[in-house]
């Protein structure tokens, strides 16, 4: 029926070129470079096997950046999850009032990352910042490592809040209402309806949001750059930020390639787990 054989290829050609030039080529290049000494112009000098990786794994800054990233993840993922789940529970019912709250909870999405990071940077200044005034304690957000990490975590929660909220809210609302009503008729209370019926039905979406936030935590970089520049004393320098520094400040392309390959592998594990869960999610919708 379709006569012009070449036509569909022509339609997708630009997209394929973009995918090759801006994703696959740099990806392969970066993985290959991680086994070589890389010159300043990006060309490969000599094959070094696993030396870049050995250097990396014995490098204290790498270890610290990894530890910082996992600490960020450990704080960010649960806090993000609890707040979003709470917001969804509170605005689950469709009503005029909840429409207003939905808009409010979506708003952080409309704010650009660097704008939000600047606002947070100024709000969290010690002594003269509004946050310390409101809580009444003068926390050294910029000088204390853990406090600085927390301030970045709060920023991360704000940046992801809107999208995660919409995902969870819409899948909560599209749950089949019949089992819930039946359970209520049989005398189940709201807590039982939530934990026995809604949560199990929702679990694929919940896991999905959880995995996405784990991946976001692994890859966080730009918000940290704007808000703390990795400080104080590298205590908020994350692994992707470290990659950025090695690549663009130190022009150490071999190290950058090895770091990115390590992160690719971790990200691939997280992403494929979330994709596996996502395929389970499908039959609950529509």
């Amino acid at each position: 029926m379709k006569k012009h054989r070449a036509k569909p290829y022509l339609f997708i050609l630009p997209v394929l070129v973009l995918a090759l030039v801006f994703v696959y080529v740099p990806f392969v290049q970066s993985v290959v470079s991680s086994f070589f000494n890389v010159r300043m112009d990006g060309s490969l000098a000599d094959f070094t096997g696993l030396r870049n990786y050995r250097n990396l794994f014995s490098n204290e800054i790498f270890a610290q950046s990894m530890a910082n990233t996992f600490l960020f993840m450990l704080l960010f993922v649960p806090l993000n999850f609890i707040l979003i789940f709470l917001a969804v529970l509170l605005t689950e019912r469709e009503s005029r009032r909840n429409k207003f709250f939905e808009t409010v909870f979506m708003l952080p999405m409309a704010m650009g990352m660097s704008s939000m990071a600047l606002i947070f940077k100024y709000m969290f200044r010690p002594s003269v910042g509004i946050i310390n005034r409101l809580i009444g304690i003068d926390i050294q957000w910029t000088n204390n490592a853990l406090a600085a990490m927390f301030s970045v975590v709060f920023l991360g929660v704000f940046l992801d809040f809107g999208l995660d909220y919409i995902i969870l809210l819409s899948s909560m609302r599209s749950l089949d209402k019949a089992p819930q009503e039946a359970a209520r008729l049989d005398g189940a209370n709201e807590w039982q309806v939530l934990t026995r019926i809604k949560l199990p039905l929702l679990s694929p979406t919940l896991f999905f949001v959880l995995f996405i936030s784990i991946k976001d935590a692994l890859l966080i970089c730009a918000p940290v750059m704007v808000m703390t520049e990795g400080g104080p004393f590298r205590s908020t320098q994350t692994i992707v930020y470290y990659y950025y520094i090695e690549a663009f400040r130190n022009s150490n392309y071999s190290a950058a390639a090895a770091i990115s390959t390590v992160v690719f592998i971790i990200a691939a594990i997280i992403t494929s787990a979330s994709a596996a869960l996502d395929s389970r999610r499908v039959h609950y919708e529509n």
Binding site: S30, G42, V240, V263, F264
Partner: peptide, 13 residues
């Protein structure tokens, strides 16, 4: 392509 974190392709790009 959606599974490859774009921030790690910055230096190549």
């Amino acid at each position: 392509t959606l599974f490859i974190p774009s921030d790690l392709l910055l230096s190549g790009n």
